[in-house]
């Protein structure tokens, strides 16, 4: 799972940083002439860091959600309107004056496009899978429509939570849909 890998990567990097800092701190107790050739070492440190970050950026940027299924035609388009403190989901465009939603069922292994907007303040539109893992998200912003594309592989019920703080009942703002 992506989140577990992220946590492991972070703990690994933290471990390296701790070892380096503790080692350097301890070395000041057996002091002699200090670091030899620091300028050269600094150059290599900088170069290695730049290369690692360059590789990391070039691998991750193409995986950005803006490019996901960009060349595909979605099998279904779901309109989403967020309002304090509920979501409306519909296969038809949602009327701002009389917002209403419907029960949503989506096909598995097909590209789905969510067209997400808000009728009041900023909200989040975050999709959680059956094991309660955040799998994708976008923001619901007044005056704009964010298009989020995703292919659900597992059938089951998916929860939607608001992840952008929107007021006093923010923690209760939720919805769901079924993937068959």
């Amino acid at each position: 799972m992506q989140q577990s890998s992220i946590l492991l990567l972070f703990l690994f990097l933290m471990g390296i940083a701790l070892i380096v800092f503790i080692y350097i701190f301890m070395s000041s107790k057996r002091a002699d002439q200090g670091m030899s050739n620091p300028l050269k070492k600094r150059f290599w440190f900088f170069l290695i860091l730049t290369i690692i970050m360059g590789i990391f950026a070039s691998v991750t940027i193409p995986k950005s959600p803006y490019f996901a299924f960009a060349d595909k035609t979605p099998a279904k388009v779901i309109h989403v309107a967020a309002m304090q403190f509920s979501f409306f989901l519909s296969e038809k465009a949602i009327d701002r004056d009389k917002p209403s939603g419907q029960k949503i069922e989506l096909p598995a292994n097909e590209v789905i496009e969510f067209r997400v907007t808000s009728f009041d303040v900023n909200h989040g539109f975050a999709i959680y899978d059956k094991s309660n893992r955040l799998i994708t998200q976008t923001q619901a912003m007044p005056g704009y429509v964010n298009r989020l594309r995703y292919k659900f592989k597992e059938p089951g019920e998916y929860n939607i939570l608001c992840l952008e703080y929107c007021g006093v009942a923010h923690q209760l703002m939720r919805s769901s849909f079924i993937v068959k």
Partner: peptide
């Protein structure tokens, strides 16, 4: 990192 940010 954008591809991590979507789940964080």
């Amino acid at each position: 990192t954008i591809s991590n940010n979507i789940v964080l």
